[in-house]
Design a binder for these strands. Structure first.
Length: 300
DNA sequence: AAGACGAAAGTGGTTGA
DNA sequence: TCAACAACTTTCGTCTT
C-alpha cells in the first residue's frame, strides 16, 4: 500500500467518510478522493450461503434509482475528444447502443420514480416505504401491468401498498390529493397490482393512525396516551374488528379529547382522519357503552 | 350560530350461490 | 353473474350550548 499525501499540506493522515464516499485530510480538511468504495453492506445475511452469494462491491443497491444505482455509461461527456479520430467512430457507436439498451420500461420506470420521489417527500414517507414502493412499481412495470393504466395511478397504488406493508399507512385521501388522482382509481389499481404481484397486505390497525392524526390535531401527549389506552382496551373487547380502522382511531381520539378536556369538534377530527362525523359518532357511542367511559367524561 | 345528534337513503366492495 | 350484506357516506331536520 502506497502512502497518500495531502497535496495542500503534506499530511499523511486521513479520515474516510464512508457514507458519502470521501477521503478527507485530517489536518486541513481537504477532500482528497471522492467516490471511494463504501465498505459497508446494504444487504442482510441470514445464512453464510446467502452472505457469499450477495457479496459484491459498488454503491449500495437502491430501488429508488431507475437503474438501482448501477448505471454504466460509456464515456464521460469530454471523453469523445480524447481518442483518435478512428477510435472516435467506434466509441460513438457504442455510446449509441448503450442509449438504445435503455428500453421503454427503463424509461417508464425512470419517470415513475421521479414522480414517486416528488410525492414521497411531499407526504414525508419513510425511506423504507419508498424503497418498497419503488420495488413494487418496478415489478409491476416488468410484468406489463402499467399498460392500460395511467403511470401515476400505478405509482400511487404502489406507494399506498408499500406504506401499508410497513405499517406507516397513509389514507387514500392523502395519496389521491398528493397525486391529484381519483381515489377510486388508486384503490382499483392498488388492488389490481397486489393481486397480480401476489402481495398480501394485512389490514391496518387503528393504532397505526393514532400518532399521525394526533400530531395533526396538535394534541397533548396526555391525550394521545389516553387515546392509545382506549384503542388497546377496545381491541381487547373486540369492538374494533370489522370496523374501519380510521373510524376507530378518529373516535378514540375524539373521546380522549373529551376526557382530557382538550376538546376538538367532531368535524376537526373527522377531517384529519378522512371519515365523516357520523362515523365518529357511531364508533364513539360503541366505545363509551362498551368501555364504560361515561363516568370518565363526566368527572372532568 | 355552531356543534352534536340520529334517521334514512345511497355508495362501492366483498361474498356466496 | 347476481343478489345479499356490512360498513361507511351523504343529506337533512332537530336539539343543545
Amino acid at each position: 500500500m502506497n502512502k497518500m499525501k495531502c497535496p495542500s499540506c503534506g499530511s499523511e493522515e486521513f479520515t474516510v467518510d464512508r457514507r458519502v464516499g470521501e477521503t478527507i485530510c485530517k489536518k486541513c480538511g481537504n477532500v482528497i478522493d471522492e467516490d471511494v468504495i463504501d465498505y459497508g453492506q446494504e444487504w442482510r445475511e441470514f445464512s453464510s450461503d446467502q452472505g457469499q452469494s450477495r457479496r459484491r462491491t459498488g454503491n449500495p443497491l437502491t430501488f429508488t434509482k431507475h437503474d438501482k444505482g448501477m448505471s454504466t455509461r460509456i464515456g464521460k461527456p469530454g471523453d469523445l475528444y480524447k481518442v483518435s479520430s478512428s477510435e472516435r467512430k467506434r466509441f460513438y457507436r457504442l455510446k449509441k447502443w448503450q442509449a438504445r439498451i435503455s428500453t421503454a420500461i427503463e424509461r417508464n420506470v425512470k419517470y415513475a420514480l421521479a414522480e414517486l420521489r416528488r410525492v414521497g417527500s411531499f407526504l414525508n414517507i419513510p425511506h423504507i416505504a419508498m424503497e418498497e414502493a419503488a420495488r413494487i412499481y418496478r415489478s409491476a412495470a416488468e410484468k406489463g401491468l402499467v399498460r392500460g393504466r395511467s403511470m401515476e395511478s400505478v405509482v400511487a397504488g404502489a406507494l399506498y401498498a408499500a406504506c401499508r406493508r410497513h405499517r406507516f399507512p397513509r389514507t387514500l385521501d392523502e395519496i389521491s390529493e398528493a397525486f391529484t388522482l381519483d381515489k377510486k382509481e388508486i384503490g382499483k389499481t392498488y388492488r389490481f397490482i397486489c393481486r397480480e404481484l401476489g402481495i398480501r397486505i394485512l389490514p391496518t390497525f387503528p393504532l397505526d393512525y393514532i400518532y399521525r392524526f394526533a400530531s395533526e390535531l396538535k394534541l397533548s401527549p396526555k391525550t394521545i396516551s389516553k387515546a392509545v389506552e382506549i384503542i388497546n382496551k377496545a381491541q381487547g373487547k373486540e369492538i374494533t374488528s370489522g370496523k374501519g380502522p380510521m373510524g376507530v382511531a378518529a373516535a378514540a381520539l375524539y373521546v380522549a379529547t373529551l376526557i382530557c378536556n382538550e376538546k376538538k369538534t367532531q368535524r376537526e377530527v373527522a377531517d384529519v382522519a378522512g371519515v365523516t362525523e357520523v362515523t365518529i359518532r357511531n364508533r364513539y357511542k360503541e366505545l363509551i357503552d362498551r368501555l364504560n367511559l361515561g363516568d370518565e367524561i363526566q368527572t372532568i
